[in-house]
Amino acid sequence: MSIILGEKTTDNVFGAVWLAALILTYEKKVIQKSDTIFFDQVDIQKLAKLLCTKTVQSARISQWCNGDHPNSSYNYLRANGSKRRLTQIGEFNNSKEYPDHLLKAEDEIFEIKENGKKVKYGELFEWYCSIYSKVTNLPVSNDPDSTLEDLGDQDDISMEGLQEDEIKNILANYLNNHGWQTQIAMGKIHGIDIDAFKGKDRWIIEVKGCGSRNAMRVNYFLAILGETLQRMSDKNAKYSIALPDMQQYRNLWDRLPRLTALFVNKDKQIEELT
């Protein structure tokens, strides 16, 4: 490498993966003047291990931080075959594209060997926001294993529906007009998207926006189901998901199967629940 890492580390495994991808991208684009933006997963993992005080497993790069994977938790990376690149701001509707408050702006991340310049986190993050995220026409996924486009319409569709915050505002007005008191998590605020109360009634609503590609909408749809399931701790509450009125989302909703669960124990006994 053309840099010397500083001593600053984090205990945020996912944040370390994002930071590793950012450092590799900065090194290639700024220091080495290279057009390379996709990296082997093992290289991201190796660097993330040096940045993190916890174990960084390969699945963090292949799946959990890969926004093109249907079961991802964060949208920090994009896939192109087996390689990964850093997500630009806005590629996933500003949803979980980078970690908030990962490090302090004055933290020194690395030193450039050639000139001894020390690059701080604030400078690195500013480059990510103002330079890297403004680059146009970066390649996106062509990994057949990273998406589930066959669950929706096959042709890519531009952003023709409502954004997430637009839906939240529409729903908030609707609920308020019908006597509900609402708590709304706008933008990057964590928590329940819409938590509504009326008397003893409670209505919890998770929201996703239109996205810009079919694969992204599939990811959104799978994610909102998982997020809602994790929220379902209040047995007396009503739970809903809210999506733009787009045909692909309607198709995905129509394909939700009627499932039963088979619980299998070590004694080879099987119990089916409906």
Results as ranks from 00 to 15, higher is better:
K96E: 09
Q63H: 12
T55G: 10
D68I: 04
I89A: 10
Y98Q: 08
L86C: 08
L51Q: 08
R85K: 14
H101A: 11
Y74W: 09
T53N: 11
I109G: 02
E111Q: 15
Q57S: 14
G116F: 07
K118W: 03
Y121Q: 05
E106I: 10
V30T: 06
E114L: 12
K29S: 10
P99S: 09
T36C: 06
Q45H: 03
L47C: 09
G122D: 03
E97P: 01
E97C: 04
N71W: 10
A48K: 12
I112F: 08
A105L: 05
L47K: 11
K29W: 00
T55D: 15
F39Y: 11
Q32F: 01
S82P: 00
S62K: 14
L22F: 06
I109F: 04
F39C: 05
D35H: 05
A48G: 07
L22H: 05
V42Q: 13
K96A: 12
V119Y: 01
K120G: 09
S82R: 06
G90W: 01
E108W: 00
Q41G: 13
E126Q: 14
E114Y: 05
N66F: 06
K54S: 14
W127C: 04
Q57G: 12
Q88Y: 02
I23W: 03
N115A: 08
G67N: 10
E97Q: 04
E126H: 10
F125P: 00
V30D: 01
S58D: 05
E108M: 08
N66C: 13
G90V: 03
I61S: 07
R85V: 00
K117Y: 05
K117F: 03
I44F: 01
F92Y: 15
A48Q: 08
I31W: 03
K117I: 12
P99D: 06
G67S: 09
I89Q: 09
D68L: 02
D43S: 10
L103G: 09
L86F: 07
A79T: 12
L102H: 10
E106R: 08
N75I: 02
K117D: 14
K118H: 09
F110I: 06
S72V: 07
N75E: 02
L103P: 07
L50S: 15
S95D: 12
L47H: 11
L47R: 10
A79F: 03
W127G: 04
K118N: 12
S95F: 14
N93M: 05
T25C: 05
C65R: 11
F38W: 11
G67M: 07
N80D: 07
T36H: 01
E126S: 13
R60A: 15
L50D: 15
Y128A: 04
R60E: 13
A20I: 01
K46G: 00
F110S: 08
W64T: 15
L124R: 04
Q41N: 10
I37K: 04
